[in-house]
Design a protein around this nucleic acid. Structure first.
Length: 839
RNA sequence: GCGGACGUGGCGGAAUCGGUAGACGCAGCGGACUUAAAAUCCGUUUUCCCAAGGAAGUGCGGGUUCGAGUCCCGCCGUCCGCACCA
């Protein structure tokens, strides 16, 4: 039986079965002598269906994993599921299905979709983070961190929905109301667990320096997020009191320019004053009401309340500064109090102008040195210190050092490194997450669950009909005995933030013993991840938490690596045009007809073409992976995912684009089909060279993840093969193709390999060798320029000397005509490249 | 406001070190095959004057250089991150 076209439905299933039977994607043993290559794509949340963005992500990882195998590496390429999270609980509330049931069904459906892509994944290492066999080990690590002091418990304010009786994330609070219940959200203080990530701030920051295979953009984002700044903590004495107010400043050099002290609305001093001052209490409430969106902050007016108190200037006890409560001072950064130096800080200046406070210049702006500061734009640049007594004439940097030394000597302040990064609050008042393995005992307090009682398993018999955390109202699950005194005690009912689950899954993929989170030697044989691929949306949280978790394990002596991901690649999104009908409703691509660029709906109505946007259900511009694999097969879809756009940029999905990929797959198949005949006779040196260039070039492009360029090189080679009339060279080139395309078009490659009589599976073959001598041409085309403008090209032997090149250029008829007998002023010869004649 | 990236044909993009701009794909145009369609194949496609042959051209304006898409300075535009962080 012989098909006239490549039939992907048959071929995909056939080769996927063959790969599975031969178990060729099984992870080699940890002591495999080949160099290790751990290729990992960010594991998906099992939301229900695979999204085209996943297809792009996993195709890229797959190409690299397959290529690394072909180039002699021992490859680890696993897949799993980030399976805890709120959508499962929402489904439980909306559809009455248990979160576990919903999640498992989604995993099954999505795995079936992924299998259709023919990914070279070792599925034997698959796990879901909602498996007790996974989260039990996470609980053990949590307890290790608890014992090591990396976990601590603190009372902290949360967004509390009084109707749903649950804590809400900031994103779930809309206009001050719960997104589901619509109830006014309350600020409530709860005891919560925190991971001491701020203890790691400095090493997380300096560690970025060694991540030279990460995008600069991501490193910069993390650097900004950690937000290191250096300055002074200064104590200002309250007049007529024993108390002081501590402020943090990065500009201690401007201390002689201070004109007021401002404290946050929830600063303890403001709170205690408000107890006896109703007007202040009202003002504090007003401060809290302000919105926190970017736009609101942009336009927010500076508001202040004069407390009537004053403080002494630390360098002059007779100089008193008023103490204000101000809405622009944040309690959770620094000390929640600042000294205002209006001349050299824009916010302070806005505030001072509004409330008529003094504005005193202490840094010279060029020639401007007068103490009386003019205008409404603060001077924040560098300059000589002025109007500052003993510091006059110093540079800003010198003055900073001098003041800090003075403060430390006199005892009213000290140097301080401040980070923007906060500790990671990991308590969630939710069911579908890893239970925090803690027991509360009235006599012994907070006690860790003994290791031999792990995992603390989520109860299955829960109901979501009533609001609140089902663990809290479960009839028996909470009740337990204290491991210390054996008396009656209660389990912690909070669960861990799901970001904890994704902070170590890459270690578990590398090593998964039953009795421990990982086997150290085995994990270290694979780690760090050689290439990590995922979306830019995880640039901060996930990647920072995973770096932190790894360093926490390192600090506790559990692992030797400090950075989990040696190389990171952030791929772009898949986008599509959007369409709307006359009424403004979104239409899906299937609901739109295109007749010579004129768009109409199926019933003939006018349709407008909208912007190209990320595929999303709400805009109906999604393309379902199953549908396109049905239509074109896995290889054409994979090819499209790699073509045209550089992988870090967005990829525009188009019908004509995928059809082009389909045509190319068929074109290759025809080549394989016809090549069974023996190739004898004439050789075509140009094609032979093109073949070697493609082998080297495609390899380099896959290594550097510039798949779009690898694709272009394969097109070039195929074009060259089709043009060539030399059977022997054609046959050799076609014989190379299956291996060359195998990482990208694995099913078609197997067909080709089989058609050409190869033994075994092409996926197991080595990457073809190339002859470096074939990469260079004997003759090269040299540009001939006059005054830098191209006039002609000449062909010379590759190793032609400068003199020969110059002579050949001067002898060129177009050059002769152009210079018309004039004497060249200068001749630049770049051997093998060009000759430039300056006249 | 602060920080960053980017700007090349009708479109996605290529040009690795400062050295022949537009590889490769898509779309378009012309043709072949066919009763017809699909499929396939051949040719063509930066712009302008066009017969050959020129001229211009990588957001805009300058600069460095024998030579600039690439380096420097200043604009304009688009996108992204953070944001009252002291």
């Amino acid at each position: 039986m012989h098909d006239t076209r490549f039939n992907p439905i048959k071929a995909d299933a056939k080769w996927q079965a063959a790969w599975e039977k031969a178990a060729i994607f099984a992870t080699p043993a940890a002591d495999d002598p080949r160099p290790k290559s751990y290729v990992l794509e960010m594991f998906p949340y099992p939301s229900g269906r695979i999204h085209i963005g996943h297809v792009r992500n996993y195709t890229m990882g797959d190409v690299l994993a397959r290529f690394r195998t072909m180039t002699g590496h021992a490859v680890l390429h696993p897949m799993g599921w980030d399976a805890f999270g709120m959508p499962a609980e929402n489904a439980a509330m909306e559809k009455g299905v248990h979160p576990g049931t919903w999640t498992r069904a989604n995993i099954a459906a999505m795995k079936a979709q992924l299998l259709r892509l023919g990914l070279a994944i070792d599925w034997s290492r698959e796990f879901a983070t909602c498996d007790a066999a996974y989260y039990g080990h996470e609980q053990a690590m949590f307890l290790d961190m608890f014992d090591a002091g990396i976990v601590y418990r603190k009372e902290s304010a949360v967004n509390w929905d009084p109707v749903d009786r649950t804590v809400l994330a900031n994103e779930q609070v809309i206009d001050g109301r719960g997104w589901r219940s619509g109830a006014l959200v309350e600020r409530k203080k709860l005891n919560q667990y925190f991971l001491r990530i701020t203890d790691f701030a400095e090493e997380l920051l300096t560690g970025l320096g060694e991540l030279d295979k990460w995008p600069d953009k991501v490193r910069l984002m993390q650097e900004n997020w950690i937000g290191k700044s250096e300055g002074l903590i200064a104590n200002f004495h309250l007049v007529g009191s024993e108390q002081g107010v501590e402020v943090f400043t990065t500009r201690p050099d401007t201390i002689y320019g201070a004109s007021f002290l401002a404290i946050a609305a929830d600063h303890p001093l403001a709170q205690s004053l408000a107890a006896n001052a109703p007007e202040l209490a009202t003002f504090i409430d007003q401060c809290k009401q302000g919105g926190t969106t970017a736009a609101e902050l942009e336009t927010a007016e500076k508001l202040g309340f004069n407390t009537g108190l004053s403080v002494q200037h630390p360098l002059d006890p007779d100089w008193h500064l008023p103490v204000w409560v101000a809405n622009f001072v944040l309690m959770d950064y620094g000390t929640g109090a600042v000294f205002g130096c209006p001349a050299h800080d824009q916010r302070d200046l806005d505030f001072a102008r509004k409330y008529g406070l003094p504005v005193r210049r202490v840094v010279a702006d060029g020639d401007a040195t007068d103490a009386d500061f003019d205008g409404d734009i603060a001077f924040t640049g560098a300059g000589a210190i002025v109007n500052s007594h003993w510091m006059d004439g110093m540079s800003v940097a010198a003055a900073k050092a001098a003041i800090i030394a003075r403060a430390e000597h006199d005892g009213w302040g000290h140097a301080k490194v401040q980070y923007r990064l906060r500790d990671w609050g990991i308590s969630r008042q939710r069911y579908w997450g890893t239970p925090i393995p803690i027991i509360h005992c009235d006599s012994c307090g907070v006690v860790g669950v003994p290791r031999d009682q792990l995992p603390v398993v989520l109860p299955e018999d829960v109901d979501f009909a009533t609001p609140g955390n089902p663990l809290d109202r479960h009839p028996t699950w909470r009740d337990t005995n204290c491991p210390k005194c054996q008396g009656p005690a209660r389990r912690e009912t909070d669960t861990l933030d799901t970001f904890a689950d994704s902070s170590w899954y890459f270690i578990r993929f590398a090593s998964q013993p039953d009795n421990a989170p990982f086997n150290r030697a085995e994990a270290e044989s694979w780690l760090p991840v050689g290439q990590y691929i995922g979306g830019i949306e995880h640039a901060i949280l996930h990647l920072l938490y995973a770096r932190f978790w790894t360093r926490a394990l390192h600090r506790m002596g559990k692992i030797s690596i400090t950075e989990p991901f040696a190389a990171l690649f952030t791929q772009g999104m898949v986008t599509h045009e959007t369409y709307r009908d006359a009424a403004g409703n979104w239409l899906s691509p299937e609901e739109v007809r295109d007749a010579n660029g004129v768009l109409t709906s199926l019933d003939g109505g006018a349709v407008t073409r909208g912007r190209v946007e990320k595929m999303s259900k709400s805009k109906k511009n999604v393309v379902d992976p199953d549908g396109i694999i049905d239509q074109y097969g896995a290889d054409a879809v994979r090819w499209f995912m790699l073509s045209d756009s550089p992988p870090e940029r967005d990829l525009l999905w188009t019908e004509s684009g995928i059809e082009g990929c389909w045509r190319f797959v068929q074109r290759l198949w025809r080549l394989f089909d016809a090549a069974a005949e023996k190739g004898d006779g004439a050789r075509d040196v140009a094609l032979d060279k093109a073949c070697h260039r493609a082998i080297a070039g495609v390899a380099a492009d896959i290594e550097s993840l510039t798949f779009n360029k690898a694709v272009a090189k394969i097109y070039e080679l195929v074009n060259a093969i089709e043009k060539s009339r030399a059977p022997a060279s054609r046959h050799d080139a076609i014989s190379i193709l299956p291996r060359l395309i195998s990482p990208m078009l694995p099913h078609l490659a197997e067909e080709g390999w089989q058609a050409l009589g190869g033994s075994g599976l092409v996926a197991e073959q080595s990457w073809p060798d190339h002859d470096p001598a074939m990469l260079v041409d004997d003759d090269v085309t040299i540009a001939v320029q006059i005054n830098g403008k191209l006039r002609d090209t000449i062909t010379l032997p590759r190793d032609a000397s400068r003199e020969v090149a110059q002579a050949a250029a001067l002898a060129n008829t177009r050059v002769q005509t152009a210079i018309a007998g004039a004497n060249p002023k200068k001749i630049i010869v770049v051997p093998g490249r060009l000759v430039n004649i300056v006249v």
